[in-house]
Design a binder for these strands. Structure first.
Lengths: 334, 334
DNA sequence: CCTATAAATGTAATCGATTGCACCACTTTG
DNA sequence: CAAAGTGGTGCAATCGATTACATTTATAGG
């Protein structure tokens, strides 16, 4: 195709290419001439030919634990926003669904379909992780939101421990002493961090988190709902429940409501994330806000920087601040 | 790279290529030999070289009105699931954010970064739509969920009118006569379809939808919340409100609750979509379920078929069934 | 034993752009 | 006025695979 343009403009393909990619390397008039022809014929460079020659894809892969989980949408949007500014495309893949072709995410890197990888999944299979830290790929990977414990790869994350400190201090400040915790899925780094944050903050207040006051096991609505009956069967009952996610909290409130209990009169409930529906829960959910959009942007930013200079970003960890959002789901104990 | 493998295996690059892509075109032993070398050296084909030569990208672009809107996540997952089975990659772009590079989605097609396009946005700018129906792109485009009125492109959609008929028949069957409607954003095809569905179904029951009983103007939680006070200021009040989305319904319930009204005792509320949190709303939301996962899969399926045979799929419209899900947000009027 | 046919492999053109190097036409400088 | 420098172009190699066509080798049929 570039040949056609060259022929029509009466110049060489080299000149067309330069007029398009390095406008300052051709004369004013040649550029205008070439641009005119390009315009008239609606010519567009073939990205494969370019990628093949330049040895870069112009695309980045985002690996999501579950594409169907709405929690990730804002992070993805943040990533896409930043990438679009840089003129880089976004590929997405689900790290759990391994379809017919069954290509590992690393294959995208090795087949040079993507220049880099942003993983929102911190619990990648050991084999995948091993591939990722190989010399030829380690400089192309960053983590967002979650991160792997076993490899010191660059990552962007929210300040999960601080978030839980804010949550604990809030409910303890209201006068609660028996605080229960709804935790996330086992083996997840966020689960560990947040739980550790809760325990540390409670300890700092002279309180403890006995194992029987921990329930959940999943970030989902279902898990929260199911936990209600178990939590309320305890004697004495916990007076406040801190949840590892807003979904857990909303599910829990739903479960409590089914038991005829109301929030915050009978129990205080706190979430984590500040998802879009948190302000519209009944009651509006007191929670810890993490800025998912900013997190996505920062991750994309970090990856772009890493691709430009792997050494400079070696092991870099960016921790984003979180914020206590006071709404109506917490109150002093009865 | 393929040259290295060829040299190491003592065969030509042609044979390596065939061993990899057309195993039946080489002898058993050659294949084993080549595979062995490939395995040992972790060789992977370069996708650009392949794409350049084969003139296909092996990727498809999904265009989403707002990547941050969780409503789309399940559709995207459906698309990705199906594409992965076919060994095709998924690129995503936000049709609203036009970042620095500001490349139109059509550019992806023209630059052959993507073989096809699935648009979840039915309200594309006229210029974009015009580009899409050009002879060289029209065979590569399908719509999912939404669709453009002005061009007869293939699409997959839910049966929006039938859904609203089910909703209307349900509340009217409970005895409601003054039914209000919370509508979506102006200019959106779903807004039009659903409203038309409501009006037709009410008319069939001998009822009407006076303009003052229509509010909303957006699918969002906020719009639903804001509508509550206006709707309840009417005399006589509507006894049931049908919403164009679950988000509207949940926002509405939140707004009603702030006014001290409860659902369904004071007002019945219906949603549309059956999003993940609908069962955990207070009260659990009666709604119309559309299977977003199936919709995404079907759209990906349709696109793959269209890419293989554009003529056969010309103007094809697939309408997926919807379903009434009875929960607790509707009851007979007081 | 020789020819026709099939199976396996190699040769080299091709996909479409980018870019190092060479070259030409002018300026500038000593 | 000759030598050196500069800006603008063109030539052709290159990126890494795929595949039409040619060639070789093995097998079957007459």
């Amino acid at each position: 195709m570039i040949k056609d343009i060259a022929r029509l403009a009466g110049v060489s393909t080299a000149t067309v290419s330069r007029a398009l990619s390095h406008p300052d390397r051709v004369s004013e008039e040649t550029r205008a001439l070439v641009m005119g022809v390009v315009e008239r014929h609606g010519y567009r460079v073939n990205s494969f030919a370019r990628s093949l020659r330049k040895q870069r894809a112009g695309a980045v892969l985002a690996l999501v634990p579950n594409l169907g989980n709405p929690f990730f949408s804002l992070i993805i949007k943040g990533i896409q926003d930043r990438l679009q500014e840089a003129g880089v495309d976004l590929l997405v893949a689900d790290s759990h669904s391994t379809g017919g072709a069954g290509r590992s995410p690393v294959a995208h890197l090795r087949e040079s379909r993507a220049d880099g990888l942003i993983s929102l999944d911190g619990s990648l299979p050991a084999a995948t992780l091993k591939d990722l830290v190989a010399p030829d790929t380690v400089g192309k990977v960053v983590f967002a939101c979650e991160w792997p414990l076993s490899a010191p790869l660059p990552s962007v994350r929210s300040d999960n421990r601080e978030g839980m400190r804010l949550a604990v201090d809030h409910v303890v400040g209201l006068g609660h002493r028996r605080v229960a915790y709804l935790t996330g899925p086992a083996g997840n780094i966020l689960t560990d961090e947040r739980r550790a944050g809760v325990e540390a903050a409670l300890a700092a207040q002279g309180l403890s988190l006995p194992p029987e006051r921990v329930d959940g096991g999943d970030f989902s609505l279902e898990a929260g709902h199911a936990a209600a009956v178990r939590l309320m069967a305890m004697t004495p009952r916990p007076t406040a429940v801190i949840c590892a996610s807003d979904q857990l909290a909303i599910g829990l409130i739903s479960g409590l409501s089914a038991l005829g209990l109301s929030v915050p009169q009978d129990v205080s409930v706190m979430g984590f994330d500040d998802i879009a529906s948190a302000p519209y829960a009944l009651p509006p959910l007191t929670t810890i806000r993490q800025d998912r959009l900013a997190l996505g942007r920062a991750a994309a930013d970090l990856l772009l920087e890493r691709l430009a200079d792997p050494a400079a970003t070696e092991g870099r960890v960016l921790t984003l601040p979180v914020e206590l959002v006071l709404r109506r789901s917490t109150a002093a104990p009865a």
